[in-house]
Nucleic acid binder design. Structure first.
Lengths: 199, 199
DNA sequence: GTCTATATTTCGATAGAC
DNA sequence: GTCTATCGAAATATAGAC
């Protein structure tokens, strides 16, 4: 997941640079409390210039939503067939961990602005395509053909990974990624392994 | 934790009723996108009346912050001595689970408005008391005298419980609380038990 | 305690020059 | 592609009557 194009620091599109700054500010102050003026100023130009690259403020959030979506698409590709998902869950989660770490900022931003993203989703609801990722996830977790304990542990494992990764730039700031990944994999095994689910 | 006073539905203070409605709306639309006019209308009176009970919009969020704080204070009382905390963690978490479920709405609201709460915290930072709960938590997780794998699993377990509980009104809507609690306790044991930490 | 104004501010968004 | 200037909307907060 997420090889991350990682273009040379100065060959980034203006559009991309706006999004990068937006992530920073949306983490610091939150989406709603961040004005387009602030984004523009931090980039060294004016508000109107931002409007040349994005039709609206929502449009910026939407673009970030798409970044998230693209990153998760590969890792969660298996969410199509609800039956098989439970079995694939450990692998699915495994593929997720490294992507989460590599794009930590983006996911932290999402964590801290859930309400704003949900509102965005409601707007799209009245429009086109419905490849609602979060909805699919809920569907899997609500699937009654899978034993309840398994489903609960699936939900837990997801929260556990996210929580562990979010601390990576904080309480675990000095921990090498590889080490963190190894520990997380171990924890996920205890949570989802055959031995655990057989109980 | 959280015996929850649960006053008779109609003997609630107007102030309390405002807070209840605020929780609802902050979940539905988010803190920033919710206007005081909406809160007032849903209660059947006008915006100015709300200002009689709360000095500002921030003041409403602050009151909700205190509700959260009071609920967590008991459960996380052990966070005082950083050394002993790692040992007590399983018990600490155990005490948390039921409180989280009993006051799910409040915690969901917090989850979806993290940015707003953080901003609130920054303001208090320039003022009085510093019994910063979230800060203490970070301190414990950063404590280098505790083995890294243990700390990571502590962070994971917290995220796991929260994630599991949040789904309670959603994908696990039809699951009895007692059953959910039992499964969560089992999962936490696998994540934090002596066998797991000895690995 | 609750109401009807109203003051004030800020922000998203647009128009049009360069 | 970026600027200055401005419009219009909405929200917080206040004043003062009842």
């Amino acid at each position: 997941m997420a090889p991350k194009p990682a273009a040379p620091p100065d060959e980034r599109t203006t559009r991309e640079r706006i999004l990068d700054i937006a992530i920073e500010l949306f983490i610091e102050k939150g989406y709603d409390k961040t004005s387009l003026r602030e984004i523009a100023e931090r980039l060294g130009f004016s508000k109107a210039a931002v409007y040349y690259h994005f039709a609206s403020k929502d449009d910026i959030l939407l673009a970030l939503h798409l970044r998230l979506h693209d990153l998760l698409r590969e890792a969660l590709a298996g969410l199509g067939e609800p039956d098989a998902t439970a079995d694939m869950w450990p692998l699915l989660l495994d593929g997720l961990i490294e992507g989460l770490i590599a794009n930590r900022q983006l996911f932290v931003m999402h964590e801290r602005n859930r309400a704003a993203f949900e509102q965005l989703h409601d707007k799209r609801h009245h429009e086109g395509d419905h490849e609602d990722l979060e909805g699919q996830l809920r569907g899997v977790l609500a699937d009654h053909t899978v034993p309840l304990p398994t489903r609960v542990r699936m939900a837990c494992s997801l929260g556990a990974v996210i929580s562990g990764v979010m601390m990576a730039g904080d309480a675990f700031a000095d921990v090498p990624s590889a080490e963190l990944v190894a520990i997380l994999r171990g924890a996920m095994n205890d949570l989802l392994g055959a031995a655990a689910l057989a109980r």
